[in-house]
Structures are given as C-alpha cells and as structure tokens.
Nucleic acid binder design. Structure first.
Lengths: 146, 146
DNA sequence: ACTCATTGTGAGTTAGCCTCACTAAAGGCG
DNA sequence: CGCCTTTAGTGAGGCTAACTCACAATGAGT
C-alpha cells in the first residue's frame, strides 16, 4: 500500500493535481456566483450565449456539450431572469435564436470580471515565470488534444 | 497586460485552461469506468474508503465533501455491489464503519490502474521537463491553499 | 440523572441531465 | 408540384446525485 512514495508519502500524480486545482477553482467560482443568485450552469450558458449571440439553441447545446432538450431548460431559466430573449431565426423558421438582453450583458460582464478576479487571486502566489510556464504547458496540452 | 499575447482573439486565462484540462480528464475517466459498470461518484467513494478503511460514514462524507445523508446512499450502492461492507464501530455504537470486501479491493486496484493509465496517456505528449514543471507548480498551488 | 450533541438514516425535494415522441419547417428528388 | 426524409425545438416523463428536515439511538458533560 505504501510503496508509492517518491519524495513525500503519497505522490498524487498529474491528473489528480489538475483535478484538485479544478475543484478548488470550481468551489471559488460557485461561491463568487452567490451574490447574483445564478447557478454555475446558468452562468456557463450565459457565457456561451454571449460568445456566440445571436445563436441557435442547438449551437448552444454543442458548446455546452449537453442534449438539445436540456438547453431548452437552461434558456427557459435565463429567459425567466430576463438575461436572454428567444427570437425566431430569420433564415429558418424551425429554429430559435437566443440573444442577451441589456441586463444579461451587464450580468455577463460582471460575472466575467468576478471570475477573472477569482482566478487571479487563486494563481496570485505563483511567480510570473510559473504562470507563464503553466499557461504554455496547458495550452499545448489542449492544442494536442483537438 | 501587454505580455498577454494576441494569438486568437480571446486568450483563455489560466483558470479556464485548468478547467478545460480537467474536463478532458473527467471525460476520459468516465469513459474508462464503463467496463466496470461503476459511476464516477461510486469510484470516488470507493477510493476514499480504500484510503481510510475501516472508517465511519461521517469521515467519508467529509472527504467526499458531501452531506452525511448522501454517503448513506453511496455506501448503499457500493454495498449492493458487494464492494464494501458496513459493520458496527466497536468504539461507538451509534457509528457505522465501512470496509472494503476482497472484491472491492480488487476493483479499486483495477480502477486505480486504469485511471493512472488514462492520465499517463493524457499527459504523454508533454516532455518530461514539462511534466515535472507542471507537477511542481500545481503542487505548490495546492500547498499554498491549505 | 438529566441534558445536549452526535451518528446514521427514512422521507421527501431539487437540479441538471437524459430519452422518446411529436410538430413544424426545410431540403432533396422525381 | 407533391412526396419523403431530415432537422430544430419542446412536452412528457425518468434518473441520479445531491440536498434538508425529522428522528431514534447512543455518547458525553455537568
């Protein structure tokens, strides 16, 4: 059981480290979302819509990697909060576009600022060197994986 | 500000990069769990129990960061699969201990091996240098955050 | 001995996802 | 043009993994 040691006891492994950091970030993020009364997945959806608006529900589904049916629900709740509006797609009468409302845009900006601040705080103790290295390595990792 | 490169419009930021890598790992992990017919959270619970057995349900709850009530359900399902057994805590008759069965131990070992292989595959394209750097930086990040 | 805290669980709820079936519309083809 | 197939979104209904609240049994402090 304890033959796993190298430097100090139990060496977690790269995957575990990344997952653990991600967990920390997610916790912080969720906490910093509270003032807006918005859930993480609403926030994610709002961000995706903001990046592609005006866009179809199906496109949102692809970006969120959830089933089209589930997008209906998320957009319902965002529309209930008046952060987005549905409108008919002018080029395809089957399709529905979503677009941010002014309130949605404001909220999205606020959320992005908050998230950015959270992340910066999280990584603040790293040296600039290490932050750069981390950025480079992770970017490479993701680029490989396309 | 100016060192922030302008490769492709929106530079993701460290937090987003970590989250994205974590998502990739999680997807792989979930996929590699399929052969055992075990869900990610059962796998996580099994791992926690394996690390602390024999241990109380409450302790498992703390490590999984879920409510004690939720542990009851997860342990129920692990017990149904005969990966763990409940037994009375000899030192406190209110409490219940969980312990791995031989089958549970075998499965846990298999899962750990598979996960390790997945992670190694994921990070395989990195140079040894980069893997070391990544390990060092992430470890520091987590150590800071205790 | 009496009171208060703790342990685990039954009961019931919620969030976020899913599949299936359906309507309306678009697109291809003879 | 009419017919057939595909596509976009949604109603209905279900599942899982979490939650809270209430409670019985037990332990611990005064």
């Amino acid at each position: 059981m304890s033959q796993e040691g190298k430097k100090s006891g139990v060496e977690p492994g790269l995957g575990e480290l990344v997952m653990e950091v991600a967990r920390g970030l997610r916790r912080n993020h969720a906490a910093s979302l509270e003032p807006w009364g918005i859930t993480p997945h609403e926030s994610r959806a709002l961000r995706v819509i903001g990046q592609h608006e005006p866009t179809r529900l199906g496109v949102v589904a692809q970006h969120l990697r959830i089933a089209p049916r589930s997008v209906t629900d998320v957009v319902d709740s965002l529309e209930r909060r008046e952060f987005v509006v549905r409108e008919p797609d002018p080029t395809d009468r089957r399709a529905t576009q979503v677009r941010l409302t002014p309130a949605g845009r404001t909220t999205l900006t606020d959320l992005n600022d908050a998230r950015k601040a959270d992340h910066e705080a999280y990584f603040a103790d790293l040296s600039a060197r290490d932050r750069d290295a981390l950025t480079r390595i992770l970017t490479q990792l993701l680029d490989d994986r396309i």
